[in-house]
Design a protein around this nucleic acid. Structure first.
Lengths: 117, 117
DNA sequence: CAAAGTGTGTACTATATATGACACATGACT
DNA sequence: AGTCATGTGTCATATATAGTACACACTTTG
């Protein structure tokens, strides 16, 4: 169950095919961790990194930070902060949408974005 | 900034006025922690308890677990799990609603609850 | 007034989290 | 053939998290 590591490695090796700046070492340096650490992360030898490191890694690899965080078993701190400001409202909303189909949620997103309130 | 502890203490002492089973000690025993620990928690001498303990405490005091968790700077694990299953969708939705007024969110909750999908 | 109950101070601890440092073997260029 | 880069194994560690255990002083209350 090393969803996270496998995915990171796959994406990185993909990028590497046309840009050799995506070696484990170079990526590690750019995101500010030791190569040995990133190696272990990719192989699932250790737990996924902290939120900050995961986000830097996502940016570096051109991945969606929220998606990578999800694979790391985390939820972005800024989302949590939003929820914590109005816990009842957001808790209800999210639980309500637990089983909703994707397009229903998307519709809500658009509805809200395109005005209405 | 001991929002959490102050609130717990206030609620507990309130309940205690007509039910002496709400002494710090008795509550501590019922939620399964040491009295000394609960004491420190209420005074903000230590960080808020774990999610599990916070939820037991909320139930014991008749408070909304999500609200108490929010005061503890946390977001319920089950909500996080829902978000992690569809990170992009929920991240967009939640950020979209960051500044929305309460009643707009409530409307969405109801809209979703009362069918439509 | 004795017994029981109340909250709290001090000291300790186990587990998890999030890495760093260094050395090493293998493979790829030059 | 030699240099350089690549990924990895081993060991160590700092900080945070989530409490326990015990003793003590004050206050009800029977």
């Amino acid at each position: 169950m090393t969803q996270f590591g496998d995915n990171v490695r796959a994406v990185r090796e993909q990028l590497r095919q046309d840009d050799r700046r995506f070696s484990l070492r170079q990526v590690a340096f750019r995101i500010g961790v030791e190569p040995a650490y990133l190696s272990k992360v990719e192989r699932g030898d250790v737990a996924p990194p902290s939120e900050a490191t995961t986000v830097r890694l996502a940016r570096e690899l051109g991945e969606d930070p929220d998606v990578l965080l999800a694979m790391a078993g985390k939820v972005s701190g800024d989302l949590q902060q939003i929820i914590r400001k109005r816990p009842r409202l957001f808790a209800d909303l999210i639980r309500q949408l637990r089983e909703a189909p994707d397009d229903a949620i998307l519709r809500v997103v658009r509805e809200v974005r395109d005005g209405e309130w």
